Amino acid sequence: MNPRRKKRLFTVAGIILGIGSAVGLTLYALQENINLFYTPSELVNGKGESHDMPFIGQKLRIGGMVVPGSVKRDDTTLNVEFQLIDTGPLVTVRYHGILPDLFREGQGIVAQGTLVEPTVVEAFEVLAKHDEEYMPAEVAEAVKGIKHEKPGYKLNYSKGEN
């Protein structure tokens, strides 16, 4: 092989290696920022036909209805713990901070956080839906037509009351 072709070969190989490295590093960086959405049922039973389970330490978003009577606030700190439900199992959400003004029991919420136990999410952000008409499409599909009531506690879903 003559020196000119050898130089071209090394140049092309270097360019391909550089592009490959850049793509690999980009994909690795994006992988850490992906937050998958789960409902409480999907978190416990797995997501999709393959029943993919999130792993402990995975960042995720979880959405569902706050179970009436499940909100527990610490009197000395900003720690709050509550349970979410959709159509099946309960999932506990722990949060340190001030909850949104629209947060209340029986309300649909979305929390972003890290899975710390199979049914416990340590949230760093809690979002409450902002009116009676709107709910994220993923949450609306998961809780479609479901009304959860605590025994002896009647939820009123008419607009403007709760």
Rank of each mutant, 00 (worst) to 15 (best):
L9H: 14
T119Y: 09
K59I: 11
L99E: 02
F82K: 01
Y28C: 11
V44D: 13
E117S: 04
D101M: 13
G152I: 02
T114F: 06
I109Q: 08
P118R: 10
E133T: 05
M53N: 06
I34P: 00
M65A: 15
Q107I: 10
A142R: 01
G108C: 03
L99T: 01
V93G: 02
F55C: 12
Q112M: 07
G18N: 08
L17R: 10
T39Y: 05
D75K: 11
G57W: 03
V139T: 07
E138R: 09
E81Y: 04
P68R: 08
K72Q: 14
T87H: 07
P118Q: 03
A128N: 05
P40C: 06
I62R: 10
L17V: 09
R94P: 08
T119G: 03
T92W: 04
R104W: 11
H148P: 10
I15V: 09
A128F: 02
K47M: 09
N79P: 02
G113I: 00
H96P: 04
G69I: 03
A29I: 05
P118L: 07
D75I: 08
A128G: 06
M65E: 15
F37N: 05
D131S: 09
M135D: 11
V44I: 11
K144F: 13
A22E: 06
N45E: 12
V23K: 14
Q112T: 03
N33S: 10
L25Q: 10
V139Q: 02
K144A: 11
D86M: 08
P151L: 10
Y38C: 01
G69W: 03
Y95D: 04
T76Q: 15
V116C: 08
I146Y: 13
G46L: 09
E132F: 12
H51F: 11
T114I: 08
V12H: 01
V121E: 00
G46W: 04
R94F: 00
H130L: 15
P100A: 07
V116K: 03
Y153C: 01
I56E: 08
G46M: 05
E132P: 08
G14F: 00
Y38A: 01
G152N: 12
I98K: 06
I85Q: 09
V120D: 00
E32M: 04
D74S: 01
E81D: 07
G113T: 00
T11N: 10
G63I: 08
G152H: 14
G69Q: 05
V126C: 01
G24R: 05
G64L: 14
F55I: 14
T114G: 06
